[in-house]
Measured scan of single mutants.
Amino acid sequence: AQASVVANQLIPINTYLTLVMMRSEVVTPVGIPAEDIPRLVSMQVNRAVPLGTTLMPDMVKGYA
């Protein structure tokens, strides 16, 4: 199964992502692939992302 990117903490709206904020986990539904974690660093979330939430492409500015 493919691992997705999951929030490792509460990520406030407009926060620039860093490695410590994200982890990879096999979840349903599938979100942003874990292999894209390096690409996500320094990208901004466009909403608050609670701890344990799967990151979806529409949550990250400029990802989709």
Rank of each mutant, 00 (worst) to 15 (best):
A1V: 12
A1C: 03
Q2P: 15
Q2A: 13
Q2T: 09
Q2L: 09
A3E: 15
S4F: 02
S4A: 04
V5F: 00
V6W: 02
N8K: 12
N8C: 03
Q9F: 10
Q9A: 15
I11M: 09
I11N: 00
I11T: 01
I13H: 14
N14P: 00
N14H: 14
N14Y: 14
N14D: 14
N14A: 08
T15I: 06
T15R: 04
T15C: 03
Y16L: 13
Y16H: 15
L17S: 00
L17C: 02
T18E: 15
L19K: 12
L19C: 04
L19E: 12
L19Y: 12
L19P: 15
V20A: 10
M21E: 03
M21L: 10
M21I: 04
M22S: 00
M22I: 13
M22Q: 01
R23T: 09
R23Y: 15
R23I: 08
R23P: 01
R23H: 08
S24E: 08
S24N: 13
E25W: 04
E25H: 04
E25C: 03
V26R: 02
V26Q: 11
V27P: 02
V27M: 06
V27D: 02
T28W: 03
T28Y: 06
T28S: 11
P29C: 14
V30F: 15
G31V: 02
G31D: 01
G31E: 01
I32T: 02
P33R: 14
P33E: 07
P33A: 09
E35T: 09
E35M: 05
D36Q: 09
D36S: 11
D36W: 09
I37Q: 15
I37P: 01
P38A: 06
P38I: 05
P38R: 05
R39T: 10
L40V: 10
L40G: 01
L40I: 11
V41P: 04
S42G: 10
M43F: 12
M43S: 06
Q44I: 14
Q44Y: 06
V45R: 00
N46C: 03
R47A: 12
R47C: 04
R47S: 12
A48W: 05
A48L: 11
A48H: 06
V49M: 05
V49R: 03
V49W: 02
G52P: 00
G52S: 11
G52C: 04
L55Y: 01
M56Q: 08
M56G: 06
M56D: 10
P57M: 09
P57T: 07
D58W: 07
D58N: 11
D58L: 07
M59C: 03
V60I: 13
K61N: 12
G62R: 04
Y63S: 05
Y63V: 07
A64C: 07
